[in-house]
Design a protein around this nucleic acid. Sequence first.
DNA 1: CATGAATGAGGCTTCATTCAT
DNA 2: CATGAATGAAGCCTCATTCAT
Lengths: 191, 191, 191, 191
Amino acid sequence: MEEKSKKERLIQAAIKLFAQQGYHNTTVAEIADEAGVAKGTVYWYFSSKEELFWGIIVSGAELVNNKLAKEAEQNNKTAVEKIEAIIRLHISYFKKGKNIVKMTQECSASPGENFYKEIQQLRKVAINSVAKIIKEGQENGELVADIQAKELANFILGAIGGAYNPSIYELEDVEETTDLILKIIFKGIKV
Amino acid sequence: MEEKSKKERLIQAAIKLFAQQGYHNTTVAEIADEAGVAKGTVYWYFSSKEELFWGIIVSGAELVNNKLAKEAEQNNKTAVEKIEAIIRLHISYFKKGKNIVKMTQECSASPGENFYKEIQQLRKVAINSVAKIIKEGQENGELVADIQAKELANFILGAIGGAYNPSIYELEDVEETTDLILKIIFKGIKV
Amino acid sequence: MEEKSKKERLIQAAIKLFAQQGYHNTTVAEIADEAGVAKGTVYWYFSSKEELFWGIIVSGAELVNNKLAKEAEQNNKTAVEKIEAIIRLHISYFKKGKNIVKMTQECSASPGENFYKEIQQLRKVAINSVAKIIKEGQENGELVADIQAKELANFILGAIGGAYNPSIYELEDVEETTDLILKIIFKGIKV
Amino acid sequence: MEEKSKKERLIQAAIKLFAQQGYHNTTVAEIADEAGVAKGTVYWYFSSKEELFWGIIVSGAELVNNKLAKEAEQNNKTAVEKIEAIIRLHISYFKKGKNIVKMTQECSASPGENFYKEIQQLRKVAINSVAKIIKEGQENGELVADIQAKELANFILGAIGGAYNPSIYELEDVEETTDLILKIIFKGIKV
DNA sequence: CATGAATGAGGCTTCATTCAT
DNA sequence: CATGAATGAAGCCTCATTCAT
């Protein structure tokens, strides 16, 4: 009796290999091998290589997006607190789901793929959640008002992704990154 | 007599198609077609599809890195001014070289490719230039001192790239993006 | 249900076409066609065109080399008998494996190919077996002693290959060739 | 002013490279490079790669064949002397024209090429010359009569080629090879 | 459910040959 | 005579996907 279902093993194998080697440099055969199943079996659980890849991305992105939406709807928090929560949320997700994050980054940077347009859709949803928080903060005077909420939301999410560059520094201590981002976004770097 | 050399036409065709369709979804045949030359001609000027792609990336990255390095060596500017110049430099490069930027982003997010490690090297060079400026600013009291220079450099470059997400908003007016970034990085968003 | 496995059919097709047209003038597509399988199937069974070619050569050469080695180790035969056996062995192999012999000849005469050095290795093994027999014959006075054993071995094997030139005379009656070689090698042609 | 004509330089370059790398692994560009001329120039002197290759083979083969024919027509020599002369002729040719010999061997073992049939024709001419000598020797009682002259001629020429295996022993001292062949062919190896 | 042999479209690359200069 | 940029046919190989068992 195996510990995990074949489907689960396939997903785990896919995450590992896609993150390591990228979408195009990972073959269905390799994934099946890594999961310990036959190549044909992949097609019983997933209709295509693309669906397998995209399914993983979506599961991760929706997880984050749902938490983002919930955060935006909180009533007993200031906007600053919510933004801080959002940043912590992302960083902790990056920490746990390093491989899926890498996949998502590749996904976001691969024009010409079917999933390229779809990932942008997901990004827009995230931006909307954050923008909502920002607008509140601007309306109640917590945040500076001379910035477009959506653009700021885009900046914050982009900065998080940009700062978390797992390939450069192998940041094991991502807590530091969190603090860095919070500090800059809230206080700037000028004395 | 044609206006541009075949080599130049090939490069332009490659930039256009790689940016639009991604590296793997663009065939050498398409590039040749777009450039109006025979397939074999590509190999007269470039030793492989990869070299063609990577050559374009490098030309762009070195351009920016050289300017970055020069900026870091300026003597008659404050650190803040230098950082502002760097941000303007990037944004103006993004504006002109939209397609090459897209290619670079794909390149940076494609593990398993030969150029993946090389692009990281280029990124490190850029980070070093920016970190040098930051250190100066911290030493002369312009910038807050409780942040690691290299991490901050990584954040700034990452934030620029993250904020400039041409696929989301088709930001024609990138000047706004510049101002946004400057404002946040220097002053933060809290009132 | 087909009579032979696809792998076997591929090998037979390859032998036929390689012998007829040579290595470089035979395409993988032709071999697949001749075998009645798809082009891709070739690569399910063989890792490359070269491996397919070389595998056939080796199977034949090892067959002969093994018999040669066994012959060399016989105790109840004179050297002359052994040499006769060796010649008969080759000629009967040539008779049956005409096509593989042709392939081997091409292989041996194609510098610059990866298998060129390897076939020489196989040839050396064969020479050693024959030289061993010759030395015995020289030691016990059966054979003339003023000839280097290895050179003589090389001559004998070379003469067999040279005499058996299937492209010149389409010798169906190879028995005659056997007798010819035996006569000359043992007794010479002078009255 | 260059020492040799371009045509001559091309031929020498071709001989060197064809012998070293084989016909299919040598490109026209390499030959032009080695000769220090432009690729297009090759086609001013030779109509095709094949013609360049074949021209070299023929020049060598005809040289030998002419000498062979002359030898056959000598009146003041015994058959044995003529055969000895033939063998010496070949070995000395092998010594001088190592590279052309290699090319000829490849040529003879490359079915599917246009020159494959032509080289057989040349071989037949050589055999006829030798067979003529043998017949004379058999008629005047010098040589054993129970062997077909043509088959013996084929054997002798084949044995010479087989014995002279430049790739195995790097025989610098080809004189020894000559003696070996003479000894065996005339006297055999049995005591 | 699972397998893995089989498929075939399509990609990258090589290279003999041509031809305008 | 000579050049070398340009061509395009053709080859080897990969791999997502299918399907009979």
